[in-house]
Amino acid sequence: MSRPIQALINLSALQHNLIQTKAMVGAARVWAVIKANGYGHGLLRVAKALNQADGFAVASVEEAILLRQAGFLHPILLLEGLFDEAELQVVLQHRLDLVVHSHHQVDWLLAHSVKEPLHLWLKLDTGMHRLGFNEEGLHQALFRLKHHAPHFKCHLMSHLACAEDDHPLNQQQYQRLLAANQTYQFKLSLANSAAIQLAPTMHLNWVRPGIMLYGAGIAPQHITHFKPVMSLVSRVIAIKWLAAGEGVGYGQTWFATRPTCLAVVAVGYGDGYPRHAENGTPVIINNLRVPLVGRVSMDMITVDITDHANQIKLNDPVELWGEQLSVDEVAQHANTIGYELLCGITQRVKIKELTQNEV
């Protein structure tokens, strides 16, 4: 029998989440963000399940090429645009849409006699201060593009820095984007997953859902409408009793205060489970919620099952996150975010797509 750690992928949940997202945004069109190997779920399987999205958003030409080679004809947006002037030929060949965030990218575009229609999403830095033009730079870039390449189809986008919070910067960024667009009346895109859920006025023409499609990063008022797509599961591989006062694991960071029954589970940071998950991080064993104790090892964790010792046995199923335990809750106990856990599943974890009978 092989090592029991698996990532179960429920593609029907992914399709359900897209339907819920579309219901939220009304007439706005949807860029389904599937970068980073579909947030760890598998680029092509995710794209197939999200076939009803209006377009796909990715981080690299390589991801876009894989989608085209698999037969996807959707608009595909490169969220960071060109990394190198030589990529432009590939962009044209595969009919990709480009984010343009810097003057050097404008230089690359104008250095070539591009005759084909090309959709450009110019990025305005409204307050994130990562990528994007300031307002003066945006107008300069647009003047150059319209003068030298009037056949380019231009749009305007920005990215919210604090969308998860009721932060005054959100409205400032929104108003800066609208103000910059007064002259042009371009199609606009601003809303990420958090803004889709919390700020309906910011949906504009195109939204960019990412983490919400995978059933994570869901606001409390919407939690019942979305389903987790990935369940990380394993099994109990050993059970043992400790005397009061005995320590567990590397560094002996946890000591038993009573006679304690431990379950050892086949999962560790070598699989993508967070090494910094703290004592008390919840784990589901045989449908019971029990606490992690001791440090996470490369291949194993230890869990205190004393209160359920008569209900848990060798080889019982374990859920590290999924339908019964949110990846976001686990992430909080590890001082990180659900994005990192989903994207961090390693190659040695077997991926299994659930059939309709298994869902």
Rank of each mutant, 00 (worst) to 15 (best):
P220H: 12
W241L: 05
F255H: 13
G245M: 12
V207M: 15
G268Q: 06
R208L: 15
W206Y: 15
G251I: 08
I218A: 03
P228Y: 07
F226E: 06
H276K: 13
F255T: 05
F226W: 10
I211A: 14
I285T: 02
A244I: 08
G270S: 13
A277M: 09
P259C: 04
K240D: 04
A256M: 10
R275F: 15
N287I: 00
P220F: 00
H225M: 06
P274V: 10
E246C: 08
R289F: 03
R208T: 07
M212A: 12
D271T: 00
V267R: 00
I223W: 04
A238M: 03
G280P: 05
G272W: 01
W206K: 10
D271A: 01
G251M: 10
Y250E: 05
A238R: 15
R208D: 04
I284C: 05
W254L: 11
I223G: 01
V229H: 05
Q252N: 14
F255Y: 15
G270N: 14
W206G: 12
R258D: 07
T281C: 12
P259Y: 09
I223R: 15
Y273Q: 03
T260W: 12
L262R: 06
V248P: 01
H222N: 12
R275S: 10
T253R: 11
T260N: 05
S231K: 04
A219I: 04
W206D: 14
T224I: 04
D271K: 00
V229F: 02
I285L: 04
G215F: 02
F226K: 06
V233I: 08
Y250S: 09
A263C: 08
C261W: 02
V264Q: 11
P282Q: 04
G251Y: 09
N287T: 12
L232I: 11
I284P: 01
P220D: 09
V283S: 07
P228L: 04
G217M: 07
R208H: 12
A216T: 08
T260L: 04
L242K: 13
N279A: 08
A256I: 10
V248C: 03
I223A: 11
Q252E: 13
A277P: 02
G249K: 10
A244K: 12
S234G: 11
V207W: 13
G280C: 10
P291G: 08
I223H: 15
L242Y: 03
T257W: 02
T281E: 03
L288R: 10
F255C: 03
E278M: 14
P259A: 15
